Simulated scan of single mutants.
Amino acid sequence: MRQLITFRIGAQSLAVDIMATREIRAWSPTTPLPHAAGFVRGVLDLRGIVLPVIDLSARLGWGDCDPTPRHVVMVMQIGDRPYGLIVDAVSDIATIDSADVQAPPELGRDGDHDLVKGIVTIEGEMVMILDLDRLAGDCPLPEETPLAA
């Protein structure tokens, strides 16, 4: 058994391992970074730490998000640094049996399916489980640095 936190981007349901989730914050504008990947919205100050923020909709190839006060930033620990993911809304915490997770189908689409670790049905709805390491893997950023005082 394992626990996931589920959330929405548009009509899509997605999930990540709850153990990687550090906090959920209200949307606030980011500071853009020059020459960052197109899906990197910018950075936020997270209690003195530079938090890179990924537009998850753009990262998944679903188009850029236009954040509003209704959006949230999920702060995730990915590898040795925190990242923020812009999502429409956090839904629930789900406990699933690992045996119920199915591998995503091989669709031959530019490696986008590599971002999906598995698919599971929760309460009659298909939910894509994201691979956080791959999600941030193409996101070259400076080392974690405290903001200057």
Rank of each mutant, 00 (worst) to 15 (best):
E123N: 07
S91E: 15
A148D: 15
G10N: 06
R2H: 07
I122D: 03
W27T: 07
W27C: 09
F39M: 05
P52Y: 02
G108E: 08
D17E: 13
D92V: 01
R47G: 08
L85D: 04
L56V: 10
G10Q: 06
D55A: 09
L85M: 11
A15D: 09
F7H: 09
P104S: 04
D55F: 05
G108S: 07
L14M: 09
L132W: 02
R47S: 14
T21F: 04
T21K: 03
D97W: 03
G42H: 02
V90T: 15
I93L: 15
R47A: 14
D112M: 13
A148W: 05
P52C: 09
S13G: 08
D64C: 11
V90R: 05
P146A: 12
D97F: 06
R2C: 10
H113I: 00
L14R: 00
T145N: 09
D88M: 06
T31W: 00
D131F: 01
T30I: 04
S98W: 03
G124H: 10
T30R: 03
T68M: 08
E123T: 02
G137E: 11
S91I: 04
H113R: 11
I122R: 01
P105W: 00
V120S: 02
A149G: 13
P142D: 13
V50F: 00
R41D: 14
P104V: 04
L132F: 02
I119G: 00
W62S: 11
P69D: 13
P52K: 02
D66T: 14
P32D: 05
C139V: 12
L85Q: 03
V72H: 11
P69C: 00
F7P: 11
A37Q: 14
A149H: 06
T145S: 13
